[in-house]
């Protein structure tokens, strides 16, 4: 019963929506360029802070190295009077495939990011669910607790994990004290510490979109399921879980994409053998001072990340339809 009522209500609201849509152009006609101006900031933002830096990186990735300021040669050069020469050096991209190191490091980054994303989902889902189902009074406090860590610097929080995880750190001291272990565990400087660091740091990015979808969810659907004799757990599986997929996808992308390029966490918590693409990029940039190859890695990483971003957008579009 309830479900049907909801549907009719939404149908009733739609003509009004279309009506408002008709009013829009009327205002637009009265203020020429108004809509254009409103639409401009996002494009300007993307242009200035995404496209422009990316084009600079792309340009450097096609340059040749030189010893000087800047440490790469210009692409355009006046070879003779009146002849403008464009030199594109694709050798930097070839370097990426001349040595297994880059591909292996990239695959390893993907693996670490994927495992961290699954862990974030497993930890974050119950949290988001709990917050969405809590009373109004508690909800804001709980959300606040999720966001609160952002008030301190990310770097300081990662350093705090060093204090917790090291052999004579808080965790080992506690485990020794309750007698679970006899020897302190080596957690810091291992891949495990990297997973802990990434899951901890990115958990809010998983919890918040999940919370947003779960909170928006129409509870009357669960009532309908109960009316039709569905047990709560079954209702969760066949109603709540499918409806929260957009949140799961959004959260997973927000965790996965930055985790692939994560540098600080593997650098501080990981061991010297933790191989991630961002560390290789750092070493190209600072040890070899080879800006072109470092830029080529950055461009290759971006291209390889476009696929997950497209999937993300596809799901988002489906969710909003």
């Amino acid at each position: 019963m309830t479900a049907i009522k909801v549907e009719s209500a939404s149908r009733r609201s739609s003509p009004g929506g279309r009506d408002q849509g008709r009013k829009g152009p009327a205002i637009g006609r009265r203020l020429p360029g108004g809509r254009f101006l409103v639409g401009l900031p996002p494009y300007l933002w993307l242009g200035l802070f995404f496209a422009l830096p990316f084009l600079i990186v792309l340009k450097i990735s096609l340059a040749e190295t030189q010893i000087g300021i800047p440490p790469y040669k210009p692409l355009l050069d006046w070879a003779q009077a009146g002849v403008l020469e464009l030199r594109l050096n694709l050798g930097n991209y070839r370097t990426l495939f001349s040595d297994d190191l880059y591909v292996i490091a990239y695959l390893n980054s993907l693996k670490i990011a994927a495992v961290s994303t699954v862990l974030c989902l497993l930890v974050g889902y119950p949290m988001a669910y709990g917050i969405a189902r809590s009373s109004d009074r508690h909800r804001n406090a709980l959300l606040m607790l999720v966001v609160l860590p952002f008030w301190t610097s990310f770097l300081i929080r990662v350093y705090a994990w060093m204090g917790i995880l090291k052999t004579e750190g808080l965790l080992n001291a506690f485990l020794l004290w309750i007698g679970v272990i006899l020897q302190p565990l080596q957690i810091l400087e291992t891949d495990l510490a990297v997973y802990i660091g990434i899951v901890y740091s990115y958990l809010p990015f998983m919890v918040l979109p999940l919370y947003a979808t779960l909170e928006k969810m129409d509870r009357s659907l669960l009532e309908a399921a109960a009316d039709l004799g569905c047990r709560p757990f079954r209702a969760f599986l066949s109603v709540t879980l499918p409806l929260s997929i957009p949140g799961m996808v959004a959260g997973s992308m927000l965790v996965f994409i930055p985790a692939v390029g994560e540098f600080v966490i593997p650098d501080l918590l990981g061991g010297p053998d933790t191989l991630m693409i961002a560390k290789i990029l750092w070493s190209e940039f600072f040890d070899n001072r080879d800006w072109p190859v470092a830029s080529a890695i950055a461009v290759a990483m971006l291209v390889a990340l476009v696929a997950p971003i497209m999937i993300f957008q596809h799901f988002q579009r489906r969710a909003t339809e």
């Binding site: 010893i67 070493s283 070899n288 001072r289 080879d290």
Partner: peptide, 12 residues
């Protein structure tokens, strides 16, 4: 630069 690249690579 060639020797530096070889040195960095050997260190990795």
């Amino acid at each position: 630069p060639q020797y530096e690249r070889a040195r960095t690579r050997a260190w990795i």
